[in-house]
């Protein structure tokens, strides 16, 4: 059996003290190298779970272990470092820094993590070459695209640049929060297949979140957040 990359136990989370509990998860595990789909309707707490996994927020109770590191045991600065070193993140949209070029956007994680910088340099001849290699793999290799302002790219192109950035420097975990929700239906599958190719090639674990259950069959495994989240059942019952 493959080692666990994520191991969540007895997790409780609410945004503010006194606010309703958003997440209450007894156990949730992901093995290294898996491509996992998490589904759930809007507002069910998917993004909240991802913030916890990436260490931007911390659990009220319970434990979140990522790569054998208990995140609640780290200070906020250490968690930010941990995220920079080990996690790539893709948002639903507006993933790119408007004042940076395509290539600069892709190289961004290397500015905050020496580890990913070293990884990227080990793979190719320079950060920029590595960024271009990733863009090429994601079908974004028109020389002209690299120089264009990122705001002039189509949404699909922007998402592929975001994917290249998330993969830059080979992080162990790639978290994608509804990355295809703003794409046309026929583009969704090709985008996901590109992600799969890259993740499998680099041995990266992918956690892919969406409210769109039609994508489910493409993945190794799928989880319905409502099934593991006791807080949702309480909310439903109420």
């Amino acid at each position: 059996m493959r080692p666990l990359i994520i191991d969540v136990k007895d997790l409780e989370f609410r945004w503010q003290p006194g606010a309703p509990t958003v997440l209450s998860i007894d156990a949730f595990q992901v093995s290294a190298g898996e491509c996992l789909f998490i589904k759930g309707p809007s507002g069910s707490g998917k993004s909240t779970l991802l913030s916890l996994l990436s260490g931007v927020t911390t659990a009220v109770a319970g434990s979140v272990r990522v790569m054998d590191q208990a995140l609640e045991g780290l200070g906020s600065v250490q968690r930010d470092h941990f995220r920079a070193d080990h996690i790539g993140y893709i948002f639903q949209m507006f993933n790119l820094i408007p004042y940076l070029s395509v290539v600069e956007n892709v190289m961004l994680p290397c500015q905050f993590s020496t580890r990913r910088r070293a990884n990227a340099l080990r793979r190719g001849d320079g950060l920029e070459a590595e960024a271009r290699r990733l863009l090429h793999h994601l079908d974004m290799d028109h020389a002209d695209l690299h120089r264009r302002a990122v705001t002039t790219l189509s949404v699909g192109q922007q998402q592929r640049v975001a994917a290249a950035r998330a993969l830059m420097g080979a992080p162990e975990l790639l978290i994608a929060d509804e990355p295809t929700s703003s794409l046309d239906a026929d583009r969704r599958e090709s985008f996901i297949r590109l992600l799969f190719d890259e993740c499998r090639g680099a041995g990266t674990t992918l956690i892919f979140v969406s409210h769109d259950a039609s994508l489910e069959p493409l993945f190794d495994r799928s989880i319905d957040l409502a099934e593991i989240n006791r807080a949702a059942r309480v909310a439903e019952a109420a």
Binding site: V77, D80, H81, Y89, F94, I97, L108
Partner: peptide
């Protein structure tokens, strides 16, 4: 604020 969230996602601290 979007830009800040992107920076945070690539590992920037609020201090950054």
């Amino acid at each position: 604020r979007r830009e800040m969230a992107i920076l945070r996602s690539v590992g920037a601290r609020p201090g950054h």
